[in-house]
């Protein structure tokens, strides 16, 4: 059969907003080509049809927040030759990892009248805390062109070309005047990984860290700079504690101001 020759792709969801897997459907120009290159074997958001594993590539969206999901990710790993986690939830625990800094029992009772109906773990954690991953694609949401690049790279047996440097480099390349130096705005660009093409600065606002920490970020130096400019503890903590709050470097920095 013709379909047998194509690599099998599966898309899995854990705790998330669905935005990263929606990025696949948002590749309007590439979608039919992607569907031609791979056999979409499991993608519940797009199809009722489910083909059994094993799968050549699994894309995993979302973070682990329930005992059931902590088990499920292991069975997905066992069925997948390559496992790629996509987005801030899967790579760092996501915005819902804000609960990691508080008492979850209290949280349940704030949102739900009958807390005993709710099963949740105390922390929202990235996929890599639970199973070996083959690649992580950052972003909240992931950039769809980076996603196509990653799929293309793995299908062709090469390393994905995704940068690890900071958003600052992208600003310089685009000739965007520095939001911090030129406009005295708060900007996480110096410590945040590139990938968005300096989106926020190009819209007159500072970066708020969607792509997580860059390689070897000097967060404490940035925090010190802001402190000297008069930024208080509350704002230092919440600036590092955002979309990628539980990514190690951002977590340690925010905790150091508590």
């Amino acid at each position: 059969m013709k379909t047998k020759a194509k690599p099998k792709l599966a898309v899995w969801k854990f705790s998330s907003c669905d935005g990263c897997q929606l990025s696949i459907l948002d590749c309007e120009d590439e979608l039919l080509a992607v569907a031609g290159a791979v056999h979409i074997a499991n993608f519940p958001e797009a199809s009722r049809a489910v083909v059994k594993g094993p799968y050549d590539i699994s894309l995993v969206e979302g973070s682990i927040t329930t005992p059931h999901d902590a088990e499920r990710i292991h069975s997905i790993r066992r069925q997948s030759k390559l496992l790629i986690s996509i987005g801030a939830c899967a790579t760092a625990g996501g915005i819902q990892a804000l609960k990691n800094f508080s008492n979850v029992k209290e949280f349940v009772s704030i949102v739900y009248a009958t807390p005993e109906y709710i099963h949740t773990l105390s922390k929202s954690t990235p996929i890599s805390d639970h199973v070996k991953i083959d690649f992580e694609l950052r972003g909240c949401p992931v950039d769809k062109y980076q996603l196509v690049e990653v799929l293309n790279a793995f299908l062709n047996g090469r390393k994905p070309n995704t940068p690890h440097y900071s958003v600052c480099i992208e600003c310089k390349r685009r000739g965007i005047v520095c939001r911090m130096v030129g406009h005295e705005q708060i900007c996480l660009g110096p410590v945040t990984q590139a990938g968005c093409n300096a989106l926020c600065p190009s819209y007159d606002r500072g970066c708020f860290g969607c792509f997580g920490p860059k390689e070897t970020p000097n967060t404490s130096s940035l925090a010190e700079f802001w402190s000297k400019k008069g930024m208080g503890k509350r704002d230092l903590i919440r600036t590092f504690r955002g979309i990628n709050a539980y990514a190690k470097e951002f977590r340690l920095e925010s905790e150091s101001h508590e």
Partner: peptide
């Protein structure tokens, strides 16, 4: 069975200006 994410709880203590992004 989508796992709960507790937005209403962790919004507490954040700045009003963060609400659209969160």
């Amino acid at each position: 069975f989508e796992p709960p994410r507790f937005f209403e709880a962790f919004m507490r203590g954040r700045d009003y200006s963060e609400a659209p992004d969160i």
